[in-house]
């Protein structure tokens, strides 16, 4: 596989990661949301493997396999179980209407391109052009956490942000040291478990997972 083709595949995957980020941003149904999240994980894992092959860094294979197992199978499964246990049926509610969210998302992409253009100039890796996409994925994940009311979707937004960071690490420096990545992966896993436990508690306390309910926690008035 020559570098040219690897770079093209890398761009293609980056484009699809961005696409999945937008798909999560506008998706209303919670099951589809989880599926898209799994797809994003798969794209990341393939991308990591390819970068590992091109850059000849074998620890990237391990992190690729880890991404595959964690983000494509384990986390979606946990989320799925959560959704089933908590009996979340209705469509995800958004605070801002969807066309507006899309436009904000587009603006974020342009912003991150503007921000990353000078950085990419300095880099000489084949993956340099995907930096802007990675940053955009992080920002869109954050935007998703802001525009959604439901706690589970906020978690997915958080995980999508983490995906963006992981993608940024792969494309900026051909991945972080293995130790760091293992640590981050563990963190994410534990975070997901803790979130799950919290959700059960929130659910039993408020009888809802709508985060607006938490405004009740405020004292006084």
């Amino acid at each position: 596989m020559n570098l040219q083709i690897a770079a093209q595949i890398n761009s293609f995957l980056a484009a699809f990661v961005l696409l999945t980020a937008f798909a999560m941003l506008v998706q209303k149904r919670i099951y589809s949301l989880i599926h898209i999240f799994a797809w994003q994980g798969l794209l990341l894992s393939i991308n990591t493997a390819i970068v590992g092959y091109v850059a000849n860094k074998h620890h990237l294979y391990i992190s690729s396999i880890m991404t595959l197992s964690l983000k494509v199978f384990v986390l979606p499964y946990i989320l799925h179980v959560l959704v089933v246990r908590l009996k979340i049926r209705k469509e995800v509610e958004t605070l801002v209407n969807i066309p507006m969210t899309m436009l904000i998302g587009l603006a974020l992409v342009i912003f991150s391109y503007h921000l990353m253009a000078p950085v990419s100039e300095l880099s000489h890796l084949i993956t340099k052009s995907t930096l802007a996409i990675a940053l955009a994925t992080v920002l869109i994940g954050l935007l998703m956490m802001i525009t959604r009311k439901h706690a589970v979707t906020q978690i997915i937004g958080f995980l999508a942000m983490e995906n963006g960071l992981f993608f940024a690490a792969t494309s900026a420096t051909y991945g972080m040291p293995l130790v760091v990545e293992l640590g981050v992966a563990l963190d994410v896993l534990i975070a997901a478990f803790i979130f799950g436990i919290f959700f059960f508690h929130i659910h039993t306390t408020f009888d809802s997972l709508d985060v607006e309910q938490m405004a009740k926690l405020k004292e006084g008035d």
Binding site: G105, V109, S129, I133
Partner: peptide, 14 residues
């Protein structure tokens, strides 16, 4: 959105 992403990815990735 798709068409705009296409335009953006042309400038960003290509």
């Amino acid at each position: 959105l798709m068409a705009t992403l296409g335009m953006l990815s042309f400038f960003i990735l290509e």
